[in-house]
Amino acid sequence: MATGILIGLLVVIVLLILFFISTYNRLIRLMNEVKNAWSQIDVQLKRRHDLIPNLMETVKGYMQHERETLEHITEARNLAMRPGSVSERAQAEQQLNQALHNFFVVVENYPDLKANQNFLALQEELTSTENRISFARQAYNDTVMNFNNVLQMFPTNIIGAMFGFKGQDFFEIQDAAEREVPKVSFK
């Protein structure tokens, strides 16, 4: 009888230890997935930075009169490439976004440029890069949600608290203006 209880206890302890190990490893794996997803955003941002010199080279001949717009883009790019804190870089990326947006509005006035094969290819690359950046953010947020879900649910939350795991932050748009729905008035 006594040995039976002993064996039962042993089995329970072994199972508990196995559960601890597997949960801990799972949390670590999910954590690393979050980190990897974060670095993917950087990879795609860098891709955008690398595209910009090419773009400038292509459009320079066509857009003599838009020097200011082009300079804006180059400036914003250089700013964004500089190492800094996350919020600083986010701000710089925001500027770059704005500058590129202005640029594509201006391009509408240059039909020659819009017919240039090289430019069209670059435009496709830029479109794709924008998509990649937003998909990378989306994937990052999904991994964060996954991690937070696991971390906050019972019984993983006990083990998570024991080893000091912390919930991760979502990637959110810092600029409140960008989040706002554009207003259309018919006056």
Partner: peptide, 16 residues
Amino acid sequence: CPQLYNIVEEISIASR
């Protein structure tokens, strides 16, 4: 076919 190639890469990023 750069566009198709880009699209596949984009979705590969989204789906990790």
